[in-house]
């Protein structure tokens, strides 16, 4: 499925957060969104997923959901948002409970997702007994259980340490390759952006506008090698320049104010 954003502006009271955003999220791509803190990335994602109230029809969705899809647009949250009183399997099962489906099928689906995220042996564990990385695996498993057409990930790895982050990112990519689910991925981390993205949207400081959209014109499987690294270094520098410029202006604005 695809998302189309046309002339999206958003205010919290008097605060203009997003200003005239035009954006397409295309079938099967990973679109990474970066931008200075507070520029409205989470707000944008929330509006895309229908959990931030926004009057108007600036965001449209098109296409048919894949077979077995129970929730076309599913979230993976920065803070995992697991229910602490439910075990791993019940947290994943939660999003299926209100769907009309046979118990056996539901159990199978949960099990399948847990297996794919390497969580099977922790199925009975409570969130408090898991490490941060494991918790986010549960968060991803939960989103996958609904067989979404579009995944919205809001800084899914930023609460984790660097190593866990890299490992989970690779696992996510492996997983992604199977279904090639369309994804919008918000991050602050340029390495994540370069490793995952088909295109990188750079937002300006608040109010967020689209500063630039940078295409990473290299297949993901080629990015690990030395040639790929050299290519990515260029893209990295370009993104870095864009962000730095925005951050500088933002700093100056803070000093002026």
């Amino acid at each position: 499925m695809e998302l189309f954003v046309r002339g999206l502006s958003h205010r919290y009271g008097d605060l203009l957060v997003l200003d005239s955003i035009d954006l397409d999220v295309r079938e099967g791509e990973i679109l990474v969104v970066i931008g200075p803190s507070g520029c409205g990335k989470s707000t944008l994602l929330g509006i895309l997923g229908g959990i931030v109230p926004h009057g108007g029809e600036a965001v449209r969705i098109a296409g048919e959901p894949p077979p077995g899809c129970l929730n076309p647009v599913s979230f993976v949250f920065q803070d995992f948002s697991l229910l602490p009183w439910r075990s791993v399997e019940d947290n994943v099962g939660l999003v299926l409970e209100h769907q009309r489906m046979p118990t056996g099928e539901r159990r199978e689906r949960v099990e399948d997702c847990l297996r794919r995220m390497g969580l099977l042996e922790f199925r009975k564990a409570l969130p408090k007994q898991l490490s941060g990385g494991m918790r986010q695996r549960v968060g991803i498993a939960r989103a996958l259980a609904t067989r979404p057409a579009i995944l919205l990930l809001d800084e899914p790895l930023s609460a984790l340490d660097a190593q866990t982050r890299d490992l989970l990112m690779e696992d996510f990519l492996d997983l992604w390759k199977r279904d090639r689910t369309t994804a919008v991925y918000v991050t602050h981390n340029l390495n994540e952006a370069l490793r995952l993205a088909d295109r990188v949207v750079v937002l300006t400081r608040r109010p967020g506008r689209i500063r630039d959209i940078v295409k990473v014109g290299l297949p993901r499987e080629d990015r690990a090698g030395a040639a790929g690294q050299a290519f990515l270094a260029e893209v990295h520098d370009r993104l870095w320049e864009l962000i730095k410029a925005e951050a500088r202006i933002a700093d100056r604005e803070i000093v002026d104010a």
């Binding site: 959990i51 929730n71 979230f75 948002s81 939960r142 609904t146």
Partner: peptide, 16 residues
């Protein structure tokens, strides 16, 4: 609030 938002983002009915 984020837990409630989570539930809503998965289309959970109000009563659920």
């Amino acid at each position: 609030r984020n837990l409630i938002r989570m539930g809503q983002s998965f289309n959970m009915p109000w009563l659920d």
